[in-house]
Design a protein around this nucleic acid. Structure first.
Lengths: 220, 220
DNA sequence: CAAATAGTGTCTTTGAGACACTATCGT
DNA sequence: ACGATAGTGTCTCAAAGACACTATTTG
């Protein structure tokens, strides 16, 4: 970058691709759109937006999330930047992927406000190629899936997939889905104890013992 | 990305910024260049290259590393993509940062082949602002430093900072520098045991017990 | 009271941490 | 023999894993 005459280097389009994960019916789901144009017409794809010349990457991600879900102020983080030359057959696009996590109730609530139709599909169906995605999007999903499983173990990222008030069985289920294995509840409770704060509310109406509701404890 | 008419979105320059770390004199060092043009003339900066229109991000990183160090086939990984609007006062540049790790002997050996002069500076001097970097490069270094400390704990990334054959005291020193704390050698040896393979060579000439040389074991 | 799920107590196992000891070189 | 660094044995302590037990609701 010593020589800043970039005239010999062509500029390129930069896009943000969004991976919005949620948990529905005990499965990890991803928000995708159905392409109505070529290429890959009719295929599912990750929603994305181009980054404006005066727009930060994070801003573009926020805008994209708003367009696709009607939501703002939900958790997201940058994942990885994909820059293969022929990712898109029409032109060179650098794609910065972002991962967002949201409790499924928030998605449903805002359904009417969405700009265009989006669908939730089972992430395992993508991984197993039962459902095929356009472009190199499967690779991006695989990477996000891996990162998610990783971060569950050493961060409190899973909390973004449950409501503000949640029961421990609910939270445990999220951990189990992301980790792909069952956990012992006694051990699970010990593990998350430092991250949660009990409320005085309980579930009710179920034909079994009520479950206490918790909130996420303020991080130290 | 449903609507691919990106004409309203201006294209932008994409660059790869390189963070080449090594360990010299028991300190973590970063390879930087001295800027000979405005802005930030005379300041240290991360070396970088623009990404060509037909060039992959990884390819651009490989090319940049070759230009700066004369080396190819060294370990590197993508770090994070910085896209603040005014990172560079002259134009909008999206910067994809890459981190490379190399044993210091390899850098010295190839010194003559370098395209332009580069320097190794102490990373802690950057963190403490004793040495100031151009642009937003300090932020990038901080992030890389954090990632490095993190990955030492759960990957074998530290092995890229020692020679192919290494002693355990050497390797332990690398861990200690990256973690910023001293380790007990007995415990350290237990920890790395699954990742190493003993050779029949030993150090010699020192006024103390020789140290066995090891190589990295093939990952399972 | 039976079925169902919530929640607790505690033993075992594993790994990190701490520390003292032995080993082998050059001088 | 001494100084210096390499390398090992083992105790302690804390976290993870496994499992059995108790608790509270509806029907």
């Amino acid at each position: 970058m010593e020589n800043y005459d970039s005239s010999i280097y062509e500029k390129m389009s930069v896009a943000v691709d969004l991976l919005t994960f949620t948990i529905e019916d005990g499965r990890l789901k991803l928000l995708v759109i159905s392409r109505d144009e070529e290429p890959y017409k009719g295929k599912y794809a990750l929603p994305g937006v181009f980054v404006g010349i005066d727009e930060t990457l994070d801003k573009a991600a926020t805008r994209g999330i708003k367009e696709e879900t009607g939501l703002k102020d939900i958790y997201f983080e940058q994942l990885y930047t994909f820059g293969e030359v022929n990712r898109d057959p029409r032109m060179r696009i650098i794609s910065v992927s972002y991962m967002a996590l949201v409790p499924v109730e928030m998605l449903k609530f805002k359904a009417g406000e969405r700009t265009r139709s989006a669908e939730l599909i089972d992430v395992e169906d993508i991984i197993s190629s039962k459902i095929k995605l356009a472009f190199d999007h499967k690779k991006i999903v695989e990477y996000a899936r891996w990162r998610l499983a990783n971060k569950v173990e050493y961060t409190d990222i899973a909390f973004h997939l449950v409501d503000e008030k949640f029961t421990l069985p609910e939270l445990q289920k999220v951990y189990e889905i992301l980790l792909g294995k069952n956990l012992y509840k006694a051990n699970f409770r010990k593990k998350v104890a430092p991250m949660i704060e009990a409320t005085e509310s309980f579930t009710s109406g179920d034909a079994h013992r009520p479950s206490r509701l918790y909130i996420r404890k303020n991080v130290l």
